[in-house]
Amino acid sequence: MINAYLSDGSTMRLSPEEPLAAFPEGIVWLDLIGPGPKEESHVEQLLGVDIPTRDELKDIEPSSRLYLEQGAIYMTASLVWRADSHDPQLTDVGFILSGDRLVTVRYADPKSFNLFIAALGRVPEDACNGPTLLAHLLETIADRTAEILETAIARLDRLSSDIFRDRETRRPPKFLEGKLAEIAESHRLVGKVRDSLGSLSRLITFLLNTPAIQSDENVRNLCATVGRDVTTLSEHAGFVAGNISFLLDASLGLINVEQNAIIKIFSIASVVFLPPTLVASIYGMNFQFMPELNWSHGYPLALVAMLVSAVVPFFFFRWKGWL
Results as ranks from 00 to 15, higher is better:
20 L>M: 13
303 L>F: 10
285 M>D: 14
18 E>R: 14
74 Y>P: 03
291 P>D: 11
102 L>W: 04
252 L>V: 05
224 A>I: 01
313 P>V: 15
280 A>D: 05
132 T>G: 00
155 R>N: 14
237 A>K: 02
254 L>R: 04
135 A>H: 02
163 I>V: 12
257 V>Q: 15
177 E>F: 13
136 H>G: 05
16 P>F: 04
189 L>W: 02
131 P>D: 07
261 A>Y: 00
205 T>K: 08
256 N>S: 15
302 A>H: 04
127 A>K: 07
252 L>W: 01
278 L>M: 14
305 A>I: 03
236 H>C: 01
233 L>W: 02
207 L>R: 00
152 A>I: 00
127 A>H: 11
126 D>E: 14
305 A>Y: 00
3 N>R: 14
302 A>F: 06
98 S>P: 01
195 D>V: 00
245 S>T: 12
96 I>L: 15
99 G>V: 00
136 H>L: 12
302 A>W: 03
71 G>P: 09
212 A>M: 09
85 S>V: 00
99 G>F: 08
135 A>S: 15
321 G>Q: 10
307 L>T: 09
226 V>Y: 01
32 L>E: 04
87 D>C: 13
8 D>R: 05
221 N>H: 06
110 P>W: 02
75 M>Q: 02
213 I>F: 13
236 H>N: 13
150 E>G: 00
128 C>A: 11
180 L>F: 11
133 L>H: 03
178 G>H: 13
169 T>W: 04
198 G>Y: 11
280 A>Y: 06
27 I>A: 10
243 N>E: 12
82 R>V: 14
237 A>R: 01
159 L>K: 02
267 S>V: 10
266 F>S: 08
294 N>R: 12
103 V>I: 15
174 K>L: 10
274 L>K: 14
77 A>Y: 03
279 V>L: 04
313 P>I: 15
234 S>N: 10
67 Y>G: 07
244 I>D: 00
133 L>Y: 02
195 D>R: 03
263 I>C: 05
104 T>E: 05
297 H>K: 06
249 D>H: 09
146 A>Y: 07
108 A>R: 05
23 F>D: 12
137 L>D: 03
302 A>Q: 05
298 G>S: 10
211 P>S: 12
155 R>T: 15
244 I>V: 13
265 I>D: 00
222 L>D: 10
161 S>N: 11
263 I>D: 04
117 I>S: 10
108 A>S: 13
250 A>T: 15
161 S>L: 13
278 L>V: 12
56 E>I: 00
307 L>I: 07
77 A>G: 05
293 L>H: 09
154 A>G: 13
124 P>K: 04
189 L>S: 04
98 S>D: 11
248 L>I: 05
53 T>M: 09
152 A>Y: 01
189 L>F: 09
323 L>N: 13
265 I>T: 12
65 R>Y: 06
32 L>G: 03
122 R>D: 13
60 I>E: 12
